[in-house]
Amino acid sequence: MDIFLTRLISGMTAGSVYAMIALALVVVFRSSATINFAQGEFALFTTYVSWWLTQHGWNIWLTLVPALGLGFVMCAVAERFLIRPVRKRDETAVLIVALALFTGLNGLAGWIWGSDDKVYPRLVPIGDDSFLALGGARLYYDSIFVVLSLVLVVGALSLVLNKTGLGLQMRAVATNPESASLCGIKVGRIFMISWGLAGVIGSLAAAILVPVLPPGQLGLPGMFHMLIFGTVAALLGGLDSVKGAVVGGLSLGVGLAMINGYGSFFGGSISLTVALVVIVVVLGLKPNGLFGSRRLERV
């Protein structure tokens, strides 16, 4: 029982992170109907900036301000000047630009800060006794913090989408960019803002996940698997659905924790293979995902 609880907790923790990355992808997909494969590397870059500032004596919480701001600016600028000009051509061109950003940002981070792993401080410091005993399992405070952050992000995003004028415009563009433009919406501006918001969410997710998930340090290859899991989570939930991203992320996190925990006969971790199976099954059976309404493929 306590082993089950322990796995459930670690699954929820990882799942919350996947869900946050999935949210970033969903926000982009809702506006420009594409997957930003460079989302993880944008986040990686801003997390390096945050780490670099802590090396200069900044408080870790304080570094989030410029880091998240940079995430917004970088993604918005990338959308405006790199993605939008090639959008009309075809999706291959968009994908290639995203892959270029992917390699470029990763390389740039390595160029500036070196390829050795960095110790990134925890946002919530924990000691040996910073946990709640829960039926024999240990619920560490940082797990609570990760889940709470997800709740906060989802809450804020839902609030923006459903209660503000900007959100109304974002929902209109998500439904049909052309009709939205006929309503007088500056669609390009909404694209930029959406990408920027995704950049903020992604940067926040990265800052939270680096100390919590293995390997626990900030390294160049760190975000790639997170992006894969985030993508699978978003696809599972439905690429245009906020609710889907959350459900997809949490079920993926818990599912992987259980499979890797109990499925020891597989001999070690098979997370990525499971991700492959999930992608193929979702695409085969329910291409819209669990809660999505729009397919990735544009006819």
């Binding site: 439904t175 049909n176 009709s179 007088g184």
Partner: peptide, 21 residues
């Protein structure tokens, strides 16, 4: 537009509000 061009995923009221952005 031809073929209506309503925002199908939005409520009727939200469609009207969108028209006034």
């Amino acid at each position: 537009p031809q073929g209506r061009g309503t925002l199908t995923a939005l409520s009727v009221t939200d469609n009207l509000r969108t028209g006034a952005v």
